[in-house]
Simulated scan of single mutants.
Amino acid sequence: MLRQRVHQHCGWLLLRRRGNVTINSPEAIAGLQVLIDGFKDGYIPTEALEWKEEDGRNAFESGDLLFYRQWPYQYANNVAALGEEKFGVAALPTIDGKDFVPTLGGHNCGISAYSKNKATALKFVQWWTSQESEKYALETQTLAPILGSLYEDSEMLEQFPYLPRCASPSTPPRGGRRPFPMVT
């Protein structure tokens, strides 16, 4: 959650593209202050410090939380538990009028430089990231797709009206392809 608050202030948490450590930047400090104030003022419950994702979802669904930051895979659970009339999706609030910065991620695939089966691994990655596979994961598990085309697919938008809130076309992707020869 700290990372999202820092991004809301248009900052980076640890490293910029040039490798400079920025943990104490004004943006990172402002993002951390939002969290500190949330606990101090009581709009973030102290129990949340120990919650795992499902603990937070359960608190939200039982009415103990008005807002809950969650990952797209929980969308189907919330709609089933609460109904569309009691549940909606919105972007995280912006800070100081800055643009919304999506922080969706975690759908990475990689092949170890030490793999003995690189060709097979590549075939798997190509299948896993294909439109057919991504669409299936979205339809059956409400997992956020990695393919931008599915965020604009009218059929998918009908089923999953929250998709435009997960990505911002005006926000360029951060980083880029970097060689990580020893990362699995």
Rank of each mutant, 00 (worst) to 15 (best):
G42C: 00
E47A: 15
G42E: 00
L13G: 09
A80D: 12
F180L: 15
Y162C: 12
A48H: 14
K116V: 05
C166A: 15
A90N: 13
R69T: 13
P181K: 01
L143V: 08
V6R: 04
Q159L: 05
P72H: 11
F60W: 01
K135L: 11
S112F: 08
P169T: 08
A59S: 09
I44W: 00
E61C: 10
G63H: 01
L14V: 13
S154C: 05
E61Q: 08
K123M: 11
E132A: 13
T140P: 09
A167K: 13
P45H: 00
I146N: 06
Q131S: 12
E61L: 08
T120F: 02
Q159I: 05
Q70S: 15
E134L: 05
F180S: 13
S25F: 00
E50W: 13
F100Y: 15
S62Y: 05
L66D: 10
A90K: 12
G83S: 01
E152R: 10
I23D: 04
T103W: 03
F87P: 03
R16T: 15
A121W: 03
Q131H: 07
V125A: 05
L157K: 04
L65C: 00
M1D: 08
R174I: 12
W51R: 01
Q70T: 15
V183N: 07
D99A: 12
A30R: 11
A81E: 06
R18M: 12
N77D: 15
G105H: 09
Q4K: 03
K86M: 07
G19L: 03
P164Y: 14
I95C: 10
C166T: 12
I146M: 06
S168Q: 05
H9D: 06
L104R: 07
Y43G: 06
A28Y: 05
G11S: 04
N108F: 13
P173S: 07
I29R: 12
L122I: 03
T171E: 14
L92W: 12
Y162V: 12
R178M: 06
R178Y: 07
D64W: 04
V34R: 04
P173D: 05
L66R: 08
D64F: 02
E85H: 10
A119H: 00
R17I: 03
V79Q: 06
P179D: 13
G83T: 08
G175E: 03
K123G: 06
K40S: 14
I111N: 01
Q74V: 13
Y75W: 12
K118D: 00
Q4F: 04
G97W: 04
A167R: 13
I29E: 13
H9A: 09
K135W: 08
A90T: 14
V6K: 07
G63Y: 03
S112E: 09
A30H: 11
L104C: 15
D99Q: 09
V89N: 07
G110C: 07
A81I: 02
N20H: 07
L150W: 00
L147H: 00
T103I: 15
D55I: 07
A59D: 01
A80N: 09
L92P: 13
D55T: 10
L157I: 03
A119C: 01
Q159F: 02
W128A: 14
Q131D: 10
A59Y: 02
M1I: 06
P179G: 09
L49Q: 15
L147S: 03
M1F: 08
